[in-house]
Design a protein around this nucleic acid. Structure first.
Lengths: 109, 109
DNA sequence: CAACTACATTACCTTACAGCAATCTATATT
DNA sequence: AATATAGATTGCTGTAAGGTAATGTAGTTG
């Protein structure tokens, strides 16, 4: 688990970041941003979430460094801050696959 | 993001799994299990969480395939189901490091 | 300056869940 | 069988957080 000491404080920080990903709406937003920069309004249209809702999710994701902001006139463009989000989702998807395979084996076995 | 389609249902499943890690108490339990099999009572002592609390967390972690169970007489031994939990934490720790470095740069710059 | 647009913020409601105490179940011991 | 222990389950309470409507704010346009 890296070279970092897992003190209670660090566990809180890590948990806080996992919690940011523990929400379908935020995962949906992040997934939209995969295709590139998007404004809040575009995200609202694409996700069919409410504007205030999207805005709040974006504030959270930004405060934790998951997305970056670029303001241009009236518009605010958001982008993925880095690709580690998808490393995380990849590992989770791997877990999902393993789970489903195991479940199928139980049913078939 | 792998080869899996990120339909809303899949996003819910992924979010559900991230949520399991979005809790310091559960991260603490998982971290304890790094050193090997442990009984519920041992985990209670090590984490200084309540017994009912630990038991509930273990049910959740087990239902999502994070831990495995082995019953022996009165005792139930829990172990990590696989190592992917630590891949996830490693990536998160990497994010934390990057965040803190960026913060320091801002202060210093 | 007035009206409009894009986004952020606030206030409120509702739901989910961590923590705890009490109880229940299963196993072991005498 | 009676008692004790390990763990699971249930009911309760307080708190955190998602969704939404209303409002606020910065920037733009006429």
């Amino acid at each position: 688990m890296g070279n970092r000491a897992l003190t209670p404080d660090v566990l809180v920080l890590i948990a806080e970041r996992f919690k940011a990903l523990a929400e379908p709406a935020r995962l949906q937003i992040l997934n939209c941003l995969r295709s590139g920069e998007m404004t809040v309004t575009e995200l609202v249209e694409e996700t069919s979430l409410g504007q205030a809702n999207v805005s709040k999710h974006l504030q959270l994701l930004h405060s934790l460094g998951f997305v970056a902001r670029r303001k241009n006139g009236l518009f605010v463009h958001y982008t993925l801050a880095d690709k580690s989000v998808f490393q995380l989702c990849d590992v989770m998807c791997g877990r999902l696959d393993a789970e489903m395979k195991a479940r199928r084996k139980l049913l078939a076995g």
